[in-house]
């Protein structure tokens, strides 16, 4: 555990809670892509199956349980509790174009050809592109609420901090996981355009427009 890893995890946690609270307090999921949230629920489910097979630390177990719980709670709020406010017409990204190639790639390029490891790899690849339906939705409607931009910023910051964590771990522990690193770089790059807009526009104008 180093400072980048910890702040990355906390940034990730902040993003998840910001979104959950935003939907809960406003009683609305307008502007939020339910598809991205389903993808994140799939990401956490397939990645944290090791909760059943190995124990790493209390911190690790607690965070995994919180992430999974919040992901399903978010999906529940969007598709059940506040379904009437869900803007399905604008959430039109074709997720099969992500899930199918990512599934194929995880079977082809993985650390070990075993069910759990393939599912872990699938979750890493899927996470790197899971935000695309949300970004697509924002580009389609041309705007996002300020709180939604805070969510996206924390979510992007998390993977960027993980990149620094991997640099740290490579130098000080000789550790590197090529699959996680390449997917993490892809994931971070997808947020770059958003980061730029967030810093130059998001802080000063609202509602936020692309």
């Amino acid at each position: 555990m180093n400072v980048f890893r910890l702040t990355g995890d906390l940034s990730h946690l902040a993003a998840i809670i910001i979104l959950l609270l935003k939907i809960w307090k406003s009683r609305s999921c307008a502007g939020i892509s339910g598809k991205s949230q389903i993808l994140f629920a799939i990401v956490f489910t397939t990645r944290y199956l090791d909760l059943l097979t190995s124990f790493i630390s209390l911190y690790n177990t607690c965070m995994k349980v919180i992430y999974i719980g919040c992901a399903y709670a978010t999906v529940y709020l969007i598709y059940a509790k506040f379904r009437a406010t869900y803007d399905g017409n604008h959430d039109s990204f074709r997720v099969e174009f992500l899930v199918v190639p990512v599934g194929g790639l995880s079977v082809l390029i993985n650390h070990d050809f075993s069910p759990l490891e393939i599912l872990w790899t699938f979750s890493i690849y899927l996470e790197s592109v899971a935000i695309l339906p949300q970004l697509f939705m924002i580009s389609k409607t041309g705007e996002a609420e300020t709180i939604t931009t805070h969510y996206l910023f924390c979510l992007g910051l998390y993977r960027a901090l993980y990149l620094f964590n991997w640099i740290w771990r490579f130098y000080f522990e000789g550790f590197f996981d090529m699959i996680a690193i390449v997917a993490g770089v892809v994931q971070t790059v997808l947020y770059c355009d958003f980061f730029y807009l967030y810093v130059t526009k998001g802080w000063f104008s609202r509602p936020y427009r692309l």
């Binding site: 890893r5 995890d9 990730h12 990645r47 090791d50 190995s54 790493i56 630390s57 690790n60 965070m63 995994k64 992430y67 650390h111 070990d112 075993s114 490891e117 872990w120 993980y162 964590n165 996981d177 996680a180």
Partner: peptide, 10 residues
Amino acid sequence: GEVLTQHDEL
């Protein structure tokens, strides 16, 4: 042999 990869990150 079975390779068990442990992933310690979230």
